[in-house]
Design a protein around this nucleic acid. Sequence first.
DNA 1: TTCCCCCGTCGAAGCGCTTCGACGTCCTGT
DNA 2: ACAGGACGTCGAAGCGCTTCGACGGGGGAA
Lengths: 334, 334
Amino acid sequence: MVKITDVARHAGVSPSTVSYALSGKRPISEETRQRVEASIRELGYRPHAGARALASSRSNVLALVVPLRAGIHVPVVMQFAVSVVTAARRHDHDVLLLTQEEGGDGLRRVADTALVDALIVMDVQLHDGRLPLLRALDRPSVLIGFPAEPAGLTCIDLDFAAAGELCVEHLAGLGHRVVALVGSPPEVYVRGTGFAQRVVRGFTAAADRCGLSSSVHPCEAGPAAARRVAELLLRERPALTGVVVHNEPVLEPLIDAFEAMGLRVPGDLSVTAICPDEVAGRARVPVTSVAIPAAEVGAGAVDLLMRKLGGAAVPEATLLSPRLTVRASTVPRP
Amino acid sequence: MVKITDVARHAGVSPSTVSYALSGKRPISEETRQRVEASIRELGYRPHAGARALASSRSNVLALVVPLRAGIHVPVVMQFAVSVVTAARRHDHDVLLLTQEEGGDGLRRVADTALVDALIVMDVQLHDGRLPLLRALDRPSVLIGFPAEPAGLTCIDLDFAAAGELCVEHLAGLGHRVVALVGSPPEVYVRGTGFAQRVVRGFTAAADRCGLSSSVHPCEAGPAAARRVAELLLRERPALTGVVVHNEPVLEPLIDAFEAMGLRVPGDLSVTAICPDEVAGRARVPVTSVAIPAAEVGAGAVDLLMRKLGGAAVPEATLLSPRLTVRASTVPRP
DNA sequence: TTCCCCCGTCGAAGCGCTTCGACGTCCTGT
DNA sequence: ACAGGACGTCGAAGCGCTTCGACGGGGGAA
């Protein structure tokens, strides 16, 4: 293994000079830097990560905790993860993968052993057991998602309330007067998943503001549940012409159910969804939707973390504005 | 930060004794170990990962390279990743996440900087550009998937040839005499994805062996392509009664297409697939299938790596036996 | 009883890097 | 012309841990 002293000898300088040439933490003459860089290339020098971490107390590694639980859309998680890795690499950092399973212990372990400099936690619950730990840890962290009490933490996420509003406003703008939200399974609300509740709030608020008649309907996964909800809507809200779906696996079955009941989409019913673009795009009728900007959120989380590691103050809450993509599933009210 | 010398002082022993008590690399009296452990607990000692890595030249971190490319089923990748992390934790190791995007450079970087002790590479192509690098690296690695020339490497995967055979044998056992394989998109074969070709080999070999009439049909993703293949099969192989599908996204559309053309599954046509259980299970007709044992493969890869790190010799090729789950889509030939 | 060897422990020497203080040298302002 | 800086470099002191050789004491074999 070639080490910094080898490079130093080869370039005719001291090890500290090599270090400074590499880090830029002190001025080094152009000529010396050239020589050092040439030696590094020639010898194929690679600084030893462990030694570096020990001396600098910086590992240049971030921890990423990914969720495993049911009900979360795996491809989106993957997009997050990939964008986090990509963004981290831009800042010369690597990413250590932790599973939710390990819980708080995993976080504490990688933080306490100085394996990582900072942490990103996905899928935060409203009353997440890891929150006290994250507050107490001596390393910076960023949450993807918002807990009930985000004070003292740094959080980033799509602005789900605004997403809910945006869908309603889009429908209202098309002249729809009676709208319904088909939401996540009941247990998601019970569990206290913040974003689901925030969608409901945004949906309801916007409907009230726009003077629409609105209702909210949690829905299990699967075609059977979709059919039940469709029947219920048809029966109890016959004037319904606008539907917002916040429940990926149910989107297609729900549209199928409507059609099976003689309601054409978008002819009789305009449908908009909050879901990944791929889900919206590949449905039988491409669905007007607000996408989860996974890549943006991931990159944003890394940027926040880097700023914190740099000692900068960052906002506690970062809400990404939703963007609505109009597709074939929404039309003006007949 | 509490360090090993603090523990040593607190327990009234030398730092080396603490180290040995922790690692077990030298005998330590029961009584001393007790005392050391008590001190560790009391002080909340956590060994510094970087220092440990530097002194022992072992980071206890594995690299995992995940693919990003189109055409691979994301949930399966995630299952791999999670099972790798879980298995690694059982061996007191952590997992560093790398994306395919970084290519060979990423592998070289984490290996050369001693950030990781060993590497797991997913989605290996038949003529993968990273193979020479992996062979040259001074750290052990395990490939998930088989390249054309696996000599000198350690590989693990589902035995796709056997999976193809198993599907055929299942159909043959039910009395079917004319079978077809609906495979991956043509580019997958062109790209040289080993497992796709191995399925074809197994399928053809078993059909020949069983005296069946067989044919192979690559197929693009999407319902349109599925319909085309269905029509082609109906037209050119009217006696067809058994189909093997090795193409997740096409499975459902294909069945839909058959039904739309008046062919009932399994009444007229028995269908079996090589795909994740969730895909097979959630289809309109639950499909008899051979699953990708992602968790097994991931855990197996980690085990191989640990053995290699321990200095043991391991087989170059590990093929996991396919298991066929019979569901509603296959019945005896009428 | 004597010799050996093993058990359990210690001290010290690094592992490879960063960083701090120090020290020339050369430039600039007055 | 000279003090005061800024610049560029060096040496040495660690960062916290593992590991190697050494050593005293006790037990078994002869």
